[in-house]
């Protein structure tokens, strides 16, 4: 312990600045650092989950209007035919589809499938590929 402390002490470092600097990456090239794909799919799973939690309010309001009366149903359909409401609906559907696909991958991993480093990277690629296809289909559907 004392050895470790003394070798890291500021006085020693000052006395051999050159030696210390050789070991330290002074200019970190941030472009060299990036999250691995499984980390990106994981954070997207969290972000889409938080989005969905907020989106439920809009979905419940929509369900309410759609069941209230024929008039409110038609009014809702009218509103939803606009560009921005359609865009928001597509956004909610995208979050839902992504969260669903990433969640299913979680269940596969719980079952012991794709738990290795390679499996995790492959799983992340599959999640991205499947959800992109589903999100594009949803986009065509709502428009």
């Amino acid at each position: 312990m004392t050895q470790v402390l003394s070798s890291n002490s500021p006085s020693k470092a000052l006395s051999s600045v050159k030696a210390v600097n050789r070991k330290r990456p002074v200019n970190l090239d941030l472009s060299q650092f990036h999250f691995p794909l499984p980390a990106i799919t994981s954070i997207l799973h969290r972000i889409s989950g938080v989005i969905l939690f907020v989106a439920i309010a809009f979905l419940l309001a929509g369900l309410d209007a759609s069941l209230e009366s024929e008039q409110s149903f038609n009014e809702l359909m009218d509103t939803m035919s606009g560009f921005f409401p359609t865009l928001i609906l597509w956004g909610i559907l995208s979050a839902l589809l992504y969260h669903l696909v990433a969640g299913v991958k979680h269940l596969f991993m719980d079952a012991g499938i794709g738990e290795t480093l390679e499996g995790g990277q492959k799983g992340a690629k599959i999640v991205i590929a499947v959800s992109v296809v589903l999100i594009l289909i949803a986009g065509v559907w709502v428009w």
Partner: peptide, 16 residues
């Protein structure tokens, strides 16, 4: 978390 996820997945796939 997992049991509720399965319920939500089945409901979502059914309704959508």
């Amino acid at each position: 978390q997992r049991v509720s996820a399965v319920v939500l997945a089945v409901y979502t796939i059914w309704l959508v």
